[in-house]
Design a protein around this nucleic acid. Structure first.
Lengths: 234, 234
DNA sequence: AATTTTAGTGAATCAGATTTATTAAGTCCA
DNA sequence: TGGACTTAATAAATCTGATTCACTAAAATT
């Protein structure tokens, strides 16, 4: 009644800035509620913006989700590569990859769950940039195995992609309880066990345990002599 | 205009029968479209029933999905147990489990995807009967490993649950491409490779292949004698 | 200062799940 | 054999939440 038509006014921010604010709000709401339960109204409210505004920057709810996941994933990969530099030896590298992966999951279980349930299982995943990011990520592990093969530490007949699938798939299953809010997990223990199991499966078998090689050599020498002496005798 | 108030009539079926028809329609529509894209209208239409009717039997869309998955899963487990009976030896049993699991995936990729993306990642999964079914299912593998340990075929120091996670997680990752409609996969090859890799990782190290121990002992005795005779000679 | 561009709004629209009021088919006796 | 009752079945109404749209106003440009 007081102001017949009060001219509403608002703060106008540069595109990039506003986009980041909306993304941050979306990340928060998606993390707390999950994709379906999160409403655009919630996100708009938290971002301090009207619902319509979001559509000025993001084509739809899913686009917003993908943006959130993409940012997180990119940061994760950067840290991953950084932490891996300087680590030598197949076993230590494998251990680092697993440990680092577990750490990322522990740090952002909500985003992780979103990635697993909403992004990775969608039809359009294979054509998305997130798929490509994920390939880069897992390729790091495959390179490590391949180098191990080249150095003779790893059996040449194993399938590198199978190792990749068992490591990342194994981790995912192992921590699935944690992702569904069941307490925590022992990062170090899982990393150690998993690393041991995988290495036992893929490492080149030790040729001569307990100095078998030397033993064989010695015996062959002896046998040779024995045979030649027998020849003299008979 | 013709019939002022044409009395609509309909076929009335017994509860169980109608429920199965609706379930069958739901399975079809969910499989083809996925959960979100499937509409209750679609399902009702295919079941030859009005939308409201579905709610007489199922509390909501999700309940319907869970019913579909439950039926499929139960059948899968039954077949699984049946095929496993009579298989002896840890390696053969493991191979059978993996092979059978891959077969199930290949037979119903759509339901499989629904299970992965809509059921297993939901908050209420841990309290659902489907979780319990899944536990029964994976427990079969764990029992096999445990028996292997008891027979001395499997190292006693490995974590049985870790093996479970690596096998099922590994399989899931390996066939994820197939689930997203990328061609097919070689069931036999994957089963063999995975089985080899896991067995290499968990089998008890062979103490003496080909009776090597006895051989070594005998030859050492001989060598010792020979050397001591040399001592006499020289 | 006029013009153009683009951030921003909020009400309208639309889609799809769920509810509700109502109808009619089968069933069970008196 | 025809009410009384139960419950399958319906169709329309409701409700929720994403998306669209017509419009407003702050900057930027001329």
């Amino acid at each position: 009644m007081s102001t017949e038509s009060a001219k509403r006014s608002f703060v106008r921010l540069p595109r990039e800035r506003r986009m980041r604010e909306i993304e941050a709000a979306a990340r928060e709401v998606f993390s707390q509620r999950g994709y379906d339960a999160a409403s655009m109204t919630d996100i708009a409210k938290l971002a301090g913006v009207s619902e319509g505004s979001i559509y000025k920057f993001y084509t739809n709810k899913r686009d917003l989700l993908l943006t959130v996941i993409r940012t997180w994933y990119q940061r994760m990969i950067d840290e991953f590569i950084e932490k891996l530099s300087g680590v030598e030896g197949t076993r230590a590298q494998l251990q680092t990859v697993i440990w680092q992966h577990l750490k990322s999951i522990k740090a952002n279980p909500d985003l992780c769950r979103l990635f697993y349930s909403e992004v990775r299982s969608a039809d359009d995943y294979y054509d998305s940039d997130l798929y490509r990011l994920n390939r880069d990520y897992t390729h790091v592990l495959m390179d490590i195995i391949q180098q191990g093969v080249a150095r003779g530490e790893i059996r040449a007949d194993i399938s590198v992609t199978l190792v990749r699938d068992m490591v990342f798939g194994g981790i995912e299953h192992r921590i699935s309880g944690f992702l569904l809010n069941r307490g925590s997990f022992d990062q170090q223990e899982i990393a150690d066990q998993l690393c041991d199991l995988v290495m036992a499966g893929i490492a080149t078998p030790v040729k001569s345990p307990n100095g078998l090689d030397g033993l064989v050599e010695r015996l062959e020498r002896v046998a040779d002599r024995l045979e030649s002496e027998e020849g003299k005798d008979g």
